[in-house]
Nucleic acid binder design. Sequence first.
DNA 1: TAGATTGTTAATCGATTAACAATC
DNA 2: TAGATTGTTAATCGATTAACAATC
Lengths: 214, 214
Amino acid sequence: MEEKEISQAVIRRMPRYYRYLGELIEDGVERISSNDLSGRMNVTASQIRQDLNNFGGFGQQGYGYNVKYLYEEIGKILGLNQQHNIIVIGAGNLGQALANYVKFEKLGFVITALFDVNPAMEGITVRGIKIHMLNELEDYCGKNRVDIAALTMPKAKADAIANRLVSLGIHAIWNFAHVDLDLIDKDVVVESVHLSDSLMQLSYNIEKNKKKNG
Amino acid sequence: MEEKEISQAVIRRMPRYYRYLGELIEDGVERISSNDLSGRMNVTASQIRQDLNNFGGFGQQGYGYNVKYLYEEIGKILGLNQQHNIIVIGAGNLGQALANYVKFEKLGFVITALFDVNPAMEGITVRGIKIHMLNELEDYCGKNRVDIAALTMPKAKADAIANRLVSLGIHAIWNFAHVDLDLIDKDVVVESVHLSDSLMQLSYNIEKNKKKNG
DNA sequence: TAGATTGTTAATCGATTAACAATC
DNA sequence: TAGATTGTTAATCGATTAACAATC
């Protein structure tokens, strides 16, 4: 059976729907129309309906969408109904920041280990999560399920470690190194967070804004 | 004179061009054609030429682009030719990670102060950058130029602090809180980094990949 | 039933790619 | 000059918005 490919533009919006629906649940809202949601989120109602209908008909004519049901369905679409174990390579500030971010666990993303090359860090724990030495990586991955590896080390080392992880059977990488990974196995899912790119985009928009306002 | 609006799709790609050109300079490459660059970056040569020509003709027929010149021009477009002072609100792991990220300074983004509400942090410095108490914010902004405020505190406090910053004359916010800011002044530039959104997108693509590979 | 609102098709808009004349 | 490659226009493709029949 042919699966229709859903564009990344749509996928990028799904977590945002999920977030707003979560807030609606907190506010005790039971149902919502695409039009009401549209007003809150600053997108067109048409886009909301189109986006959702990529995955199925979650609404009901004349009624709208049941908030809790839609929230759960989007959760399933995003794979949040199952636990993802994450290891973090690089136990510097950013790595530790990720380990401390409790919010991820509520979404099913559990950081199970940190790795670093600095011997001074051996055995230290962050929120109960142990920092391992990088040479224990093979051993660790042999004994524990790892779904995602987050890379927070300098870019010079990123390619080598990424490929090492891939050869250990890890097929998903959350990349914070400031480089586009060059992987031997093309069947690996990579999601990059390029902080300096984000900052440069902000900087461009600052300039643009200045010009606009004279 | 009418300025043509350049789409954010184009702007998002500019930092990536900048990054690749920087690498070419490091490798001692003097000139490059859109076609060669296209091969390295996995985009079409046509897109490269279109993107660049939004800002001006930086190339030369029969020759291509001078790497160093193009690098500098893109830097100017992105506003990297001037210093941006950043203050970070929230001196937790993420705030400190940003303060430690030396790379930003090379791009002209200088973190000048951190702010937190935790009295235990008063006076501590991170890489020489002082942690201030949040109630010193008004005083600090009165005495120092601040171009960008990075928000790394919990989402519950984000809106209030963002609006406080805006009323202090800060017109650019780099938002790490897991919320879409609701600002009183619409003339503020906001760039958000939603880490959990990024993780959810990764998770979706993991699922998709699993299905594809059986 | 009448009103509301979805699901879905059609129309529009914008972004990407292709093509090629201009020109170094 | 001949060859290469840009700048730019035209063609295509995809994503967004509008419209409305289906239906709760």
